[in-house]
């Protein structure tokens, strides 16, 4: 294989529409996983902070497991192992979202837990003192503040999930990496196509963190710097 810029650019230009088609797949996987991670992670963080010893133990175990096992192992475990054992037929796309979402929920629960714990305890007391149930106090007083504090952590989490989503190509999800791989195998221009894939990821992570930065400014509490 020779290293030729013209051949490389030709492969890139010809493959671009097909590879860009993978951006949507990647985005749906990433946003889906982040959203699932947010919902589950929020519940986990609440269980971890406000739950009894049993709940805390269980959430701790969950977090420990999903933070400790490699993504690829989990993808294979769920797709080839669990689905087979349960006689379920789900798409690799769906399984990828779920597995990334489960992992993200473990990380997001820790981000949120830190955020919740940094809110002065007196506010929960004050909420109770005006007759709020704990559920109301958490919903209307604690979480709105914790979510704001968690945005920088989420920004980080977004880039990690974005990058990790490339691994789902191993299940055959037609995302950016899988498509770049496909074109590379056909044209033998691996260098240029992987460079292209890397570049697309770079733009996606950059755009996402910028967007979250804007969100952070938008929802910032007036006069408040923490």
């Amino acid at each position: 294989m020779h290293f030729s810029i013209t051949a490389g650019l030709k492969a890139v230009i010809e493959g671009l529409p097909y590879i860009l088609g993978g951006v949507w797949v990647t985005l749906v996987v990433v946003v889906g996983a982040l959203f699932m991670g947010l919902v589950l992670g929020t519940l986990l963080s609440i269980a971890h902070v406000y739950g009894n010893r049993v709940l805390r133990g269980l959430t701790g175990l969950y977090v420990w497991f999903f933070r400790g096992v490699p993504l690829l192992v989990l993808l294979f475990l769920f797709y080839f192992g669990l689905l087979g054992a349960l006689h379920l037929d789900l798409s690799p796309f769906f399984v990828s979202i779920v597995v990334l979402g489960l992992i993200s929920s473990a990380y997001q629960s820790q981000i949120l837990r830190g955020a919740i714990l940094s809110i002065p305890e007196g506010q929960l007391k004050a909420a109770r003192a005006i007759g709020m149930s704990d559920t109301k106090a958490i919903t209307f007083i604690i979480l709105p503040q914790a979510f704001r504090l968690a945005i920088p952590g989420w920004s980080n989490e977004y880039t990690i999930i974005m990058k990790n989503s490339a691994v789902t190509y191993a299940l055959g999800v037609a995302e950016i990496m899988a498509r770049a791989n496909h074109v590379a195998a056909r044209t033998y221009q691996h260098f240029w196509l992987y460079l292209l894939a890397g570049f697309i990821f770079l733009i996606l992570t950059y755009a996402g963190t910028k967007l979250l930065g804007l969100l952070q400014k938008r929802v910032a509490i007036k006069g408040y710097a923490r």
């Binding site: 809110i119 002065p120 007196g122 004050a126 003192a129 005006i130 209307f140 007083i141 709105p144």
Partner: peptide, 27 residues
């Protein structure tokens, strides 16, 4: 039984008005 704390414990993400309003609306 209203309770007043030494360190106020206002809800930081709410304006003065919202701090007073939220109990009326939510409770």
């Amino acid at each position: 039984v209203g309770m007043i704390f030494q360190d106020f414990n206002l809800f930081d993400h709410l304006s003065a008005l919202q701090n007073v309003q939220i109990g009326l609306v939510r409770v």
